[in-house]
Structure formats: structure tokens, C-alpha cells
């Protein structure tokens, strides 16, 4: 039974379609990365799984139970780590965890042991009784994760938990996430950092404009990206108008075109730069050229026609 299951879920906010028939599942012990730019629909998917918003159609299940209004059983198996720390800053780390633990139904010795475990896991046992307003940003983020998993959930939803953190803190949080999955939890991890998805996730779903464009293991996705390189020309271009024939370039495609950027996919980019440059110069002024080797990013560009930026 999947820990997390989203089936044909649609959700609109007014005229904006936030999710368009999105389906995926996450098995226990698996880390599933939902990768997409801001506004792609990642947080909407998380909110539906949390029970904060209702899908227009389709079903969302946690540990086999429907997520819906008043579904306490589904929520009992759930741990949520929101993007922005949702903690009580005037309270200590222990008091914060005690409050969330009690609301998850923990009592007495079980609660105390759960708090100690969670504090040890996020390496805050030594500062458990300090008001967290004295904590650094990274410590608060770690405690935010501890508050989401203090009750030992079977499902954990993490909404971009590393946004704005320094590289060292990000690495420590990725280690934490791996540990949570090793304990058997199904982890849904949203991010717009490609490197995080590549380092952390067992499977990745690429989402943009509310549509799940591709999903699979990293190997599967890299294969799907093919052996083609991405050639990026940056400068000032005509965004519309005819494109000169790509004669002599081989199997090249102009996959994206804007006033500042042209993206081509091509086999063996090093040997094709000159004819591509001629094409690009015919469309405007070239100031910078970059070649990207096959990777998840290439697949993202191929699927969405744009680079993944913060």
C-alpha cells in the first residue's frame, strides 16, 4: 500500500488551473521529489495531501485513507514540514515539540521519549530548553522538521524545507530527510533545487503549470533526457519571426526562444557550436554561450522549454 497516493487530482483557483489531473504515489521508505519552479503546483499538491484544501476532482490518500475534511485518521499518520518554520518562537525547543506531540496524541513517557528522539535526530538536544528565538535560521529549520516528525509519522510532506539556507545547513537537512525515510516513512519532498532532487530523491516528478510532465527514477529520467546536449545562447534576440534553416547542424531543435535567450537541443554540441552560432546571430546579438551536459536539468528544459530558476 503506498504511503502517499494522488490520483487524477485537479484543482483550480478561479481561472487558474493549479493542478491538471496529477497522479503519483510514494512508497514507504521512499523519497519522492516533486520538482518544479515557483507556481508549478507543488504547494497545492502538498496542501491537498494535508487536507488544507479540497481537490476539485480526483483522490488523495495517506496510508490508504482518504484525505478529506475531518479525516483525523489520515492526519494522524501524517507529518508536515512547511516551507516557513511554523513554531512558537518564545517557547523552547522542548516545549514546542511537547505541544505538537500532545496534539498528535502522545502522553507521558511516550511523549518524553519521542521529544528526546526528535531533538537528538536534529542535533538540538543540548539546547532543548532555550527559547528558540535565540536559535540560528538553520537550527530553527531543523526544529521545524523535528516538530513534523516527533510522533513518528508513516508519511512526511516536506515543502521546500531548505529554501534560503546556506549549503552546509542544506546538506545537514538532506541527511535528516534520508534518516526519516530510512525509518520507513514515505517522504514527499518538493523543491526547485535540481541538485537536491538528484542527491536526495529515489524518484522525481517534474511538474510545471499544474501538469506532471515526467516521473521516474533518476536513471529513468536521465535516459528520457537522451544523449542530447543543451546549447544556451544569451543576448538580445527577436522573440518572434522566422528561424533560419538549421542546415548542417544535424539533429538540432530550437526548444525555447525569448528576447534574452535561445535554447537548442543537439547531439555533440562541441562540434555544432559554429553553425548554431550563425543561426543565433541571425536572430539577434549573442553575448554568451553555454553547453549543458545531459542531466535532470536538460530533461527539465526539454520538457518545459525553460531553465529551472529560483
Amino acid at each position: 500500500m503506498p504511503g502517499i497516493e494522488l490520483s487524477s487530482v485537479r484543482k483550480s483557483f478561479g481561472a487558474t488551473e493549479a493542478l491538471r489531473s496529477v497522479s503519483f504515489h510514494v512508497a514507504p521508505g521512499e523519497i519522492y521529489g516533486l520538482l518544479g519552479p515557483n507556481g508549478a503546483g507543488k504547494t497545492t499538491a502538498i496542501n491537498i495531501l494535508c487536507g488544507l484544501i479540497r481537490p476539485d476532482s480526483g483522490t488523495a490518500r495517506l496510508s490508504g485513507q482518504d484525505v478529506g475534511a475531518g479525516s483525523a485518521d489520515a492526519r494522524r499518520s501524517l507529518g508536515v514540514v512547511p516551507q516557513e518554520p511554523a513554531l512558537y518562537m518564545e517557547m523552547s525547543a522542548r516545549q514546542n515539540l511537547a505541544f505538537f506531540g500532545r496534539l498528535y496524541g502522545l502522553r507521558g513517557t511516550a511523549l518524553r521519549e519521542a521529544i528526546d528522539r526528535a531533538l537528538a535526530r536534529v542535533d538540538l538536544a543540548g539546547r532543548a530548553d532555550e527559547p528558540i528565538e535565540r536559535f540560528s535560521g538553520g537550527m530553527v529549520r531543523r526544529l521545524n522538521i523535528a516538530a513534523g516528525v516527533v510522533h513518528g509519522p508513516r508519511v512526511v510532506l516536506m515543502d521546500e524545507p531548505t529554501v534560503g539556507l546556506d549549503p552546509q545547513t542544506r546538506l545537514s537537512i538532506l541527511d535528516l530527510v534520508r534518516g526519516i525515510a530510512r525509518d520507513g516513512a514515505a517522504v514527499l519532498y518538493t523543491t526547485h533545487y535540481l541538485d537536491e532532487a538528484e542527491r536526495l530523491c529515489d524518484r522525481v516528478g517534474i511538474i510545471d503549470h499544474g501538469t506532471l510532465l515526467a516521473e521516474g527514477t533518476l536513471d529513468e529520467l536521465r535516459r528520457a533526457a537522451g544523449a542530447q546536449d543543451i546549447v544556451v545562447f544569451r543576448g538580445v534576440f527577436k522573440a518572434v519571426g522566422d528561424v533560419p534553416a538549421l542546415a548542417g547542424v544535424g539533429e538540432a531543435d530550437l526548444v525555447s526562444r525569448s528576447e534574452s535567450e535561445l535554447l537548442f537541443t543537439v547531439h555533440g554540441a562541441e562540434g555544432r557550436i559554429t553553425p548554431l552560432l550563425v543561426v543565433a546571430q541571425a536572430l539577434g546579438e549573442v553575448r554568451e554561450v553555454a553547453i549543458k551536459q545531459p542531466s535532470l536539468e536538460n530533461l527539465f528544459i526539454k520538457l518545459t522549454g525553460r531553465e529551472l530558476r529560483e
Partner: peptide, 17 residues
């Protein structure tokens, strides 16, 4: 301010009424 910092939403994900 709790609500604006997302604490209410977080509480709404808990298995309580």
C-alpha cells in the same frame, strides 16, 4: 501573527478537531 506565520495552517494539519 501566529496565523500569518502559518501556525494556524500547521495546526489544521494535526489530527484534532
Amino acid at each position: 501573527r501566529d496565523r500569518m506565520r502559518g501556525l494556524s495552517r500547521r495546526l489544521a494539519t494535526l489530527p484534532v478537531s
